[in-house]
Computed example of a mutant assay.
Amino acid sequence: MKKTTFASAILLAGTTLTALAHGNATGIVKERMESMMVMGDAVKSVTPMMRGEIAFDADALREAARIFQAHSGTALTEKFPEGSGGKPSEAKDAVWQEWSRFTDLAEQLATYARGLEMAAGNGLLAGGGMSAGSMMGGGSMMGGGSMMGGTAGMMSAKDIGAMPADAAFNMTTQVCSACHARFRAEDD
């Protein structure tokens, strides 16, 4: 579960920083920041369940998954029109320079979020402690080729949906982390 905790911490920190940046953002930049904040809030709402800190609630996880779906794929990429970088945007120029890779991650998030919605009914992994990376045969997806290099090795929503809910959550939030690592600028 350490990977889930790490990925959640990254997303929660991003949500806080995004909230601070909203004061100067307008138009499409503000819209995408708000969209990211909504997804961050969804992560924040279910992370305690994934950690075993509160009782598991499949319906709450399904709702979070639906939020991810509503803000991923084309709904995400259309909030990044050419020329919408620069301050106060946190998007790196790499978004537009590597557009295909960016859109692949946005679509991967949509697919994994659909899988997460299906996995919600599976409950948490018995005994805990296994991460999605270990379920996949080792290695974190964060630096792996399939996450950072396109959809060639991407799992299907059905594959994700067959996982325990916490593993599916971990896989989904790793897509967010991979995208942020490559395409989101760090604060100065």
Results as ranks from 00 to 15, higher is better:
residue 1 M to A: 13
residue 1 M to W: 08
residue 2 K to D: 13
residue 6 F to S: 09
residue 7 A to E: 04
residue 9 A to W: 08
residue 10 I to G: 06
residue 11 L to N: 05
residue 13 A to R: 10
residue 13 A to L: 12
residue 13 A to G: 14
residue 14 G to W: 04
residue 22 H to A: 13
residue 24 N to L: 06
residue 27 G to E: 10
residue 29 V to W: 06
residue 32 R to S: 01
residue 32 R to Q: 06
residue 35 S to Y: 04
residue 35 S to K: 14
residue 35 S to V: 12
residue 36 M to S: 04
residue 38 V to E: 01
residue 39 M to D: 09
residue 39 M to L: 05
residue 40 G to H: 02
residue 41 D to N: 10
residue 41 D to K: 03
residue 42 A to D: 01
residue 42 A to L: 02
residue 44 K to Y: 04
residue 45 S to N: 10
residue 45 S to M: 10
residue 46 V to M: 02
residue 47 T to K: 10
residue 47 T to F: 04
residue 50 M to Q: 05
residue 53 E to Y: 03
residue 53 E to H: 06
residue 54 I to T: 15
residue 54 I to C: 06
residue 54 I to A: 03
residue 55 A to E: 11
residue 56 F to P: 01
residue 58 A to T: 00
residue 64 A to I: 03
residue 69 Q to H: 00
residue 73 G to D: 05
residue 73 G to N: 08
residue 80 F to C: 08
residue 82 E to I: 13
residue 82 E to Y: 13
residue 85 G to S: 15
residue 87 K to R: 14
residue 96 W to G: 02
residue 97 Q to S: 14
residue 99 W to M: 14
residue 102 F to Y: 15
residue 102 F to W: 14
residue 105 L to T: 11
residue 106 A to M: 08
residue 109 L to V: 14
residue 109 L to T: 06
residue 109 L to H: 00
residue 110 A to Q: 09
residue 111 T to V: 15
residue 111 T to C: 15
residue 112 Y to F: 15
residue 114 R to G: 06
residue 117 E to W: 01
residue 117 E to R: 05
residue 117 E to F: 04
residue 118 M to R: 14
residue 118 M to C: 06
residue 120 A to S: 15
residue 120 A to M: 09
residue 121 G to V: 12
residue 122 N to I: 10
residue 123 G to M: 12
residue 125 L to D: 14
residue 126 A to V: 13
residue 127 G to T: 08
residue 129 G to A: 11
residue 129 G to F: 09
residue 129 G to L: 09
residue 132 A to C: 11
residue 132 A to P: 01
residue 133 G to T: 12
residue 133 G to H: 11
residue 134 S to F: 09
residue 135 M to K: 13
residue 136 M to G: 06
residue 137 G to A: 09
residue 141 M to T: 13
residue 142 M to K: 10
residue 143 G to E: 02
residue 146 S to M: 12
residue 146 S to I: 03
residue 146 S to E: 07
residue 147 M to W: 12
residue 152 A to P: 08
residue 153 G to H: 08
residue 155 M to T: 04
residue 156 S to Y: 09
residue 156 S to C: 13
residue 158 K to N: 08
residue 158 K to T: 06
residue 161 G to H: 10
residue 162 A to W: 00
residue 163 M to T: 03
residue 164 P to R: 11
residue 166 D to K: 04
residue 169 F to Y: 12
residue 171 M to Y: 07
residue 171 M to K: 04
residue 174 Q to E: 14
residue 178 A to L: 01
residue 178 A to D: 00
residue 178 A to N: 00
residue 179 C to Y: 06
residue 180 H to V: 14
residue 182 R to Q: 15
residue 183 F to G: 11
